[in-house]
């Protein structure tokens, strides 16, 4: 009976779903990098249970804000690159203003995060966090140095 089920139902459905599983996921690389960064920071900060419970929700929220702002920046830059010669002075000026506004929002988000995080982590660990973030970025850049740009 099990053999019959295997032939008639299980295999066709598995065959139907396998391409879905194999399908390339947009943003999958980014997710992997995020998971790596989290692992990197976890190792560096060595948080206590109480610290971790307060720290990670705040850090995730901050990272989400940062990601949204960077995506906005990406959209903006693509708009400019697409047809720069065809843009009016007014439009170029608006783009520059918007880029500055996004950068300001990112700085505001970091300030807000910094203020909150200081109340759940000792300042020494906050400093270690920023250092760990920079070090992780440098690790990424090092890895990319010898790779073709495409």
């Amino acid at each position: 009976m099990l053999k019959m089920h295997l032939k008639k139902i299980v295999l066709p459905v598995l065959l139907f779903f396998l391409p879905l599983a194999a399908m390339a996921q947009p943003g999958k690389g980014k997710e992997k990098i995020e998971a790596m960064r989290v692992a990197f920071i976890t190792k560096r900060l060595d948080l206590t249970v109480t610290e971790a419970q307060a720290f990670w929700p705040l850090y995730n929220q901050y990272q989400q804000k940062k990601e949204d702002l960077r995506t906005s920046m990406g959209v903006l830059r693509k708009k400019a690159e697409k047809n720069y010669e065809g843009l009016s002075d007014k439009e170029i000026d608006a783009l520059i203003e918007e880029e500055l506004a996004i950068k300001q929002k990112e700085l505001d988000a970091q300030k807000e995060f910094n203020k909150k995080i200081k109340s759940v982590l000792p300042v020494k660990k906050v400093g270690m966090l920023y250092k760990a973030e920079e070090d992780f970025k440098m690790e990424l850049i090092k890895q990319l140095q010898n790779k073709p740009s495409n």
Binding site: K30, K32, R70, L144, N150
Partner: peptide
């Protein structure tokens, strides 16, 4: 980290 590509980090 050895498997990452440019396109994965361009926004980061």
């Amino acid at each position: 980290i050895k498997k990452i590509q440019y396109k994965d980090v361009q926004d980061l």
